[in-house]
Computed example of a mutant assay.
Amino acid sequence: MSKEQRAAARAMIAKGELGRTPQVQRDEFNVIFDLPLGDDVTLTPRTLGGVPALDVHVDGADGDAVIFYLHGGGYVIGSARTGANLAAPLARRTGLPAVSLDYRLAPENPFPAAVDDALAAYKDLLGSHDKIVIAGDSAGGGLALATMLAARRDGLPLPAAAVLFSPWTDLTLSGASLDTRGDYDPLFSRGHIQEYADLYLAGHDPKDELASPLLADLTGLPPLLIQVGSAEVLLDDALQLAVRAAEHEVDVSLDVVAGAPHVYPLNVGIMDEADEALDHAARFLGGAVA
């Protein structure tokens, strides 16, 4: 990644002021991340387990397995449409259809609403697909982990693999990078992450494993691919997850790109590493369902 690419990627995002209302943040986020998906992409509304979702179909992506995608946004902002920004290139590269979930958001619907919605949708997918892979970014990465933990608790078959882009896995906010990366992260500070945690938890114990899956026993989870940039306050959430997964005998791969911002694979066409990351993620997911 050249200095010019790094600067261009970082220039696309900037820290917002603390204390803005969720609706203001949602409106801004939806405008910024209304990214072009390509003429080969069709989005079709549907429901899964009673939860709104979007079928993300890319021409030619007709494989038997399905990608279950969970968007980021601190459990407060984002949508199935913003999730399609990564679900679509994954579908294109894997040849698999994808579905992006519109799970309920805080503060109107605090923990565990997002987990309940994701699990209900996952159960519905199990009824129609023998092979499922799961992916998510930021809070959606943590939610993907929580969904697998809830599925394991309920004795359900687990996905074949999971890709986690800059996952938020620790709502106790114990990671040192929340402070050491604060001046380097162009998007977030500890204060921003604390605001989202407070809105989502609404007083619930952050040590609950479905809120902070980093703290859970990860034994038995499927292979994980974690991708993160070094210019992130959530860097330690990814690094510690990789260590903990390995300690629990979970196959885990970790990609760290120096100088890359939060969820850097969104920077397709701007950062070479974004394209490389999605290519790696597609090989990983495709291999899991081959």
Rank of each mutant, 00 (worst) to 15 (best):
F188P: 04
T172D: 13
G142M: 05
L126M: 11
G155Y: 05
A176F: 07
D183Q: 15
L143K: 02
D130K: 14
G142F: 01
G136T: 01
A135P: 05
K131S: 14
A161T: 05
D154P: 09
L164F: 03
F188A: 13
D170M: 12
G191F: 01
D154M: 06
P159F: 09
S189L: 15
H192E: 09
G182T: 14
G136N: 06
V163C: 12
T169K: 04
S166N: 06
S177F: 04
S189Q: 14
K131R: 14
S138Q: 10
A160K: 14
H129K: 13
A162E: 07
H129P: 11
R153Q: 14
D137G: 03
A135R: 10
T172H: 12
F165H: 00
L125A: 05
T147Q: 08
S138L: 07
T169I: 08
L125T: 04
D183F: 10
P159E: 05
S174V: 13
K131P: 12
L173W: 13
D130M: 13
A146I: 09
D137V: 09
I134M: 07
V163S: 11
S138C: 00
T180W: 05
P157T: 02
L158G: 01
H129E: 07
P159M: 05
A151M: 06
L158W: 10
V133F: 06
L143F: 03
D179Q: 12
L149N: 09
S177T: 03
A160R: 15
A160S: 14
D170S: 10
L187D: 10
G175V: 10
P167E: 08
A135N: 02
G191H: 06
L143I: 00
W168K: 08
M148I: 07
F165E: 05
P186T: 09
L164Q: 01
G142I: 10
A144G: 02
G127I: 06
D170P: 09
F188D: 11
Y184M: 15
A151L: 00
A150I: 05
G140S: 06
H129F: 15
P167M: 06
D137R: 03
L125D: 00
G155E: 05
R152N: 02
T169C: 09
G155W: 00
P167Y: 03
L156K: 10
T147L: 01
L173T: 13
D137N: 08
L156G: 01
P157H: 01
V133Q: 09
V133M: 11
L149A: 03
